[in-house]
């Protein structure tokens, strides 16, 4: 539903990672970080007082 209401899908990622899959964990985290970096800072559902440092 979050993507339905307009939260960018790049910000929502799900994975099954077993505690033994350390390399998969690294790969997934890297992918997620890159994907989120590409869409830039989030503005949706973020309060102004938080956004402005």
């Amino acid at each position: 539903m979050l993507t339905h209401i307009g939260i960018e899908p790049e910000r929502l990622q799900f994975s099954w990672i077993s505690s033994a899959e350390s390399t998969k964990f690294i790969d997934v985290v890297t992918e997620v970080v890159e994907a989120v970096r590409k869409v830039g800072p989030n503005t949706r559902l973020v309060k102004n007082m938080v956004r402005e440092p």
């Binding site: 993507t3 339905h4 209401i5 307009g6 939260i7 960018e8 899908p9 949706r44």
Partner: peptide
């Protein structure tokens, strides 16, 4: 109808 819209338009809608 909502699903068919682009993501930004969906956010605007909500």
């Amino acid at each position: 109808k909502i699903e068919a819209r682009e993501i930004d338009k969906r956010w605007k809608f909500f």
